[in-house]
Simulated assay, not measured.
Amino acid sequence: MSRRSPLTLAALATSAVAGLDVTHAAPLGGTGGEVDSALLSTRDGRTLVIRVPRTAAAESEQSADLVAVRALSDGVRARLPFGVPRMLGQAPIDGTRAIVSEFVDGAPVRLDAITPGTAASIGRAIAAIHALPTSVVADVGLPQLRAIDVMREAVTTLDRAAATGLVPAALLRRWELAAEDSALWQFTPTVINGSLSAASFLVVGDSVTGLLGWARLQVGDPARDLFWMLGSSNPDVPETAFDAYHQARGVHDREVGRRAVFAAELELARWLLHGTERRSTEIVDDAVGMLHALLDRVSGDLTNPLAAEPTASLGLDEVDELLERGTPRSPGSAY
């Protein structure tokens, strides 16, 4: 299927939103090859976005995102220090649907471009999500995971990864010891976005102005929203973000940093499992290379697992790349 032009999308938007008068349409960058999108200017001075999924995976993600965004009522949005795009209308097209939503100002960020100032704003933004009442999730039937569910899902992932025979034995032992550490799993689940990466955030200057992608909104482990920052090559970035997060939350989860390390490492195992399920030699080889590189980085910590300073950079920049690629996981996945 050829890509839909901005003019075609603008015409579609007028059928999705009654009375909409579009005066200008331009391509919208950063949405990837699975979505047709355009930035629209309207006669009444608004800036809107229209998106049409091109694949079944993108359509599924869009549907889940809509459920989550609808759960964010005006009262909930008022508690967040950033904007969340609001859906204005939809229209059927070619067996899927076009969604028109508000435009939130800001530029997407890259992990390697995050400054300590931006990291502090990101930490506060994540803390605001985690401070939302769990009824936001419960009232719309989205997943609610207990701490034991998070632990069991992690164990299932490492067991499946072990069954491939491709994970270094020393890494498996490191993960098994972490899973068996009861102190690690003593936490109170919170509302989490569930799919954060650097690309999720829109910023102006050093301030987070918007957050995109809510398809995995759920109650779960706060570490799920934090671990991607450990991939920064600048150790000040995770340290500043975690500090700002704890200050804004006012609740100190002593083990959130260690669980974040665990989650970051397990993301490589997930990539391996994705490759084996797809029977992709390329992905499997990529994942095995990442696992051996991780083994080299943590080799001095294997007998005292996850004991390194939890807010220090792990150099796992590939983890953020995997998150931006959309490493598959079930909607209720803890990690």
Rank of each mutant, 00 (worst) to 15 (best):
V204Y: 00
G300F: 06
P238A: 07
A215N: 14
L111D: 02
E180T: 06
V52T: 10
A264V: 09
S60Y: 00
L184V: 03
P92N: 06
I114M: 09
E34F: 10
L323F: 03
E321V: 04
V150C: 05
R46S: 13
R79T: 04
D236Y: 09
E239N: 10
E265A: 03
E153W: 10
R86G: 13
P81A: 08
A269S: 14
D149Y: 01
R325H: 02
I93P: 00
A244N: 02
S15P: 03
E180I: 00
L295I: 03
R97T: 09
S63K: 13
L212I: 15
F227Q: 11
L166H: 06
Q247S: 07
T190Y: 02
D139G: 05
G326Y: 00
V76A: 12
S313A: 12
V69F: 04
M229K: 00
R124D: 14
N234T: 08
A10M: 07
W271M: 08
T240I: 04
I93S: 12
R279D: 12
D159T: 07
E277F: 01
D253I: 01
A183L: 14
R146F: 08
W228N: 02
P305I: 04
L323V: 06
S15Y: 15
L171D: 07
A18C: 03
T190G: 08
P53H: 01
G250D: 01
S333F: 09
R79K: 12
A334H: 03
S200R: 10
L28P: 00
